[in-house]
């Protein structure tokens, strides 16, 4: 950022007027709304928000509810696998595309298009592809492997992995693009030097290139994690939380408590827990990124 902006010289009303929507949004919606929800998570709100204090009751009840525990477990499984695979796939794709290949644009376009689609569309397509009666299972059985079983969306034990397949298909393109930008930002001399020293390509990636791409990895990580915590539409469209409650997630728990079960307090407590999860990732990142140097702006 350049420093010599005519900052205090031109005290103009217009600029302040122009910033009113931002100030209102920041203060009333983001700060105000968050505080409001956290405060009301300590109350006995049911159909309507009421300031009747019950301390940590909502949280105790939350952590004693099986649906919430399943939600947390699913988020953990989905989150862990998503993070792992989305980075591995995204990076490998970027590395492959970075090999000065032909048709780069076409390949990149095809890999990224799922990201343009909504989670609802993504969920519905994969619901259809994974349909055991018509989809992948039927095809493989048609090839002669009669006992082949692949019905993740109908098997409570593995349903969340069915969602994972869809999530990876939708989201890996984004990671690929970000990683590719990171790879392209690396000085070609690094590669030359590594080659002169006879270091094999995979080692160069692992020991030199990836450490150099740390900032890209961190920003991507923050983006991916916040996306994972928010996961909602994909579940609603693909499985509706089922079979049973096997693919419930926290965001859905919040929605269901608030708008279906008329149990606002539970919704507030659950969303506060979601906020806490995000804060655990974002705050350390913010400190790392912006904490040290004050002269960023």
């Amino acid at each position: 950022m350049s420093s010599a902006r005519p900052s205090r010289l031109f005290r103009n009303k217009s600029a302040k007027i122009a910033a009113i929507p931002m100030i209102v949004t920041a203060l009333f919606v983001f700060v105000g709304g968050t505080i409001w929800t956290v405060v009301y998570s300590f109350t006995k709100s049911g159909l309507l928000p009421r300031l009747k204090w019950v301390g940590l009751d909502q949280y105790e009840r939350l952590w004693a509810t099986r649906k919430w525990l399943v939600s947390i477990e699913n988020l953990a499984i989905y989150g862990f696998c998503m993070l792992l695979f989305v980075f591995v796939i995204g990076f490998i794709l970027a590395a492959l595309i970075d090999q000065k290949i032909r048709f780069e644009n076409t390949i990149r376009t095809v890999i990224l298009y799922p990201y343009a689609l909504s989670f609802v569309v993504t969920g519905l397509v994969w619901q259809w592809i994974l349909n055991p009666e018509f989809g992948v299972q039927k095809i493989v059985r048609g090839w002669g492997w009669e006992s082949f079983n692949f019905d993740p969306l109908y098997n409570a034990d593995i349903a969340i992995y069915g969602v994972l397949i869809a999530g990876l298909w939708q989201g890996s393109g984004l990671v690929m693009v970000l990683m590719l930008a990171g790879l392209r930002g690396i000085d070609q001399d690094v590669w030359k030097a590594a080659r002169v020293d006879g270091i094999p390509a995979w080692k160069t990636y692992l020991l030199i290139v990836i450490p150099m791409m740390r900032p890209v990895f961190i920003t991507t990580l923050v983006l991916v994690v916040t996306g994972i915590v928010k996961i909602y539409d994909l579940i609603v469209a693909q499985t509706g939380g089922g079979p049973g409650i096997s693919t419930e997630v926290p965001a859905k728990y919040v929605y269901d408590s608030m708008f279906r079960a008329n149990n606002l307090g539970q919704g507030f407590a659950a969303s506060t827990m979601m906020l806490l999860t995000v804060a655990l990732v974002v705050i350390p990142w913010a400190i790392l990124e912006f904490g040290g140097s004050k002269n960023h702006d």
């Binding site: 931002m22 983001f30 700060v31 409001w36 009301y40 916040t226 929605y255 969303s271 906020l275 913010a286």
Partner: peptide
């Protein structure tokens, strides 16, 4: 505002 972008929407739904 920028930090607000990271707050899960669920937190602000009801307000």
């Amino acid at each position: 505002l920028i930090f607000g972008a990271f707050i899960p929407y669920q937190v602000m739904l009801y307000p």
